[in-house]
Computed example of a mutant assay.
Amino acid sequence: MRHGGPELPPSCTATEATLLFVTVLAEAWRWGLPRHEVIELLPAVERALGALRAGVAEGSDGPEGFVLDLGRSAEERAARPAAARCEVQAQAYRAAMHGAELLAAFGRPGAAGWRTWAAALRERFREQFWVDDLSGGRPAAALLAGGRTVPAVASTFVHLLDVGLSTSGDLHESLLDREQTRLLAQRLAAPELDCGWGLRTLSAKSPRFNPLGHRSGAVRVHETALAVSGLADAGFEREAGVLLEGLLGASEYFEGRPPEMYAGEQRVTGSPPVPHPAACRPAALSAAAGVHLILALAGVRPDVPAGRVVVRPASTTPLGELQLTGLRVAGEPFSVRVSRIGVAVVEEASPQLQLGAG
């Protein structure tokens, strides 16, 4: 179980791990994981999708048609209706879309059904998970039985942004429409969530805000990294740059080895960020966030099954010139340089790949 913060009960980490397994395998396949290794893991993908299907609320056990905590049985949900969390819907949506692509590519049944299910979830989410307010609106942190929303403003919204490539080479359509994504981008870069060192896990305006709370205000490095990459992909580079600058500023105080989380106190000149006393340092997740950020800014999106790799660098180049070497795509070395004006030049790649730019 993982602490869910003051707004929501704890959640089972198996939910996140099960759904993200499908996405991780799909991404590895696109980077060039050998076909026979993907085939060996497809039964696990089908079991993960089966768990997803069993986790969809029906009737009185939760909000109809949305995905609940996979760690609770149907009997438990019926006895105590559960909340459908915003981030779980995003992870379930990705799992359905990526799972459908894996099933179709390897001749397994069920791909069309999962695409249909994902499209229906997208429509329901846009209608029921959106909270209107004076700023234009925002996603709900969760949906309760009967359609009641948990209106908390939280960093878990970032999971709605990056949904990966489709088979056409473009990004999948998000659970949010374009206008909703724009409003979310503005919210993420506002002081309510952005403390100047990264994203708080809970809005500073919440009466339950605690700058050192695991889910009530501390900055979690990997979620800020997800926000930067997702915003850059969606075309909101200004907002992405604001969050990136804060994360890099905090990293300097931690000598490039940020803990998994630190205090979400407002950034003040001469006052360094405060590491969480219980945080791992270094932490694998926060260390990997740096790699994720650089790849996102360079815009490297391989699709080995389709025989191509797309490079869409951020045009604002907040880190200046970038050079990535030592990568492997389709089992071959891959190197790319991004200039200070956002022009990408692939310097080394497999001859089997067609190169494209965005």
Rank of each mutant, 00 (worst) to 15 (best):
R2T: 13
H3K: 11
S11W: 14
L19S: 08
T23Q: 10
L25S: 00
W29A: 12
W31V: 06
G32P: 04
L33D: 05
E37D: 14
L41Y: 03
A44M: 11
G50D: 12
G59W: 07
S60G: 11
D61G: 02
P63C: 08
E64F: 05
L68C: 01
G71A: 04
S73Y: 07
E75Y: 01
P81S: 05
A82Y: 09
C86G: 01
E87Q: 14
Q89W: 04
Q89T: 09
Y93D: 05
A96D: 01
A96T: 06
A104S: 15
A105W: 10
P109F: 08
A111G: 09
G113P: 05
W117Q: 13
R124Y: 01
Q128F: 08
F129M: 15
D132P: 12
L134I: 11
L134A: 15
S135V: 11
G137S: 04
A140M: 02
A142H: 00
L144V: 00
T149L: 12
V150P: 00
P151N: 07
V153S: 05
F157V: 05
L160I: 07
G164P: 08
G169T: 11
H172I: 08
R178T: 15
E179P: 00
T181E: 13
A185C: 02
Q186R: 14
Q186F: 11
D194S: 10
C195N: 06
W197K: 06
G198E: 00
L199V: 04
K205R: 15
P207D: 00
P211T: 06
G213S: 08
G213W: 01
H214T: 12
R215A: 13
S216Y: 07
A218T: 03
A218N: 05
A218G: 04
V219A: 05
V219I: 14
E223R: 11
L226E: 15
A227H: 01
V228W: 09
L231S: 02
D233K: 13
D233N: 14
A234V: 03
R238S: 12
A240I: 03
A240R: 04
L243K: 08
G246M: 09
L247E: 04
L248E: 11
L248I: 11
A250W: 03
S251C: 12
E252R: 15
Y253I: 04
F254G: 03
E255K: 13
E255W: 14
P258K: 02
E260H: 03
G264Q: 03
E265R: 14
E265W: 10
Q266D: 10
T269A: 14
S271G: 01
R281M: 13
P282K: 11
A288L: 14
G290S: 12
L297W: 08
L297Q: 04
G299R: 07
D303P: 02
P305V: 06
A306Y: 00
R308G: 05
V309W: 09
V310Q: 13
R312T: 15
G320H: 04
T325M: 00
F334C: 07
V338N: 10
G342K: 09
A344C: 04
A344K: 06
A344T: 10
L353I: 06
L355N: 06
A357T: 15
G358T: 02
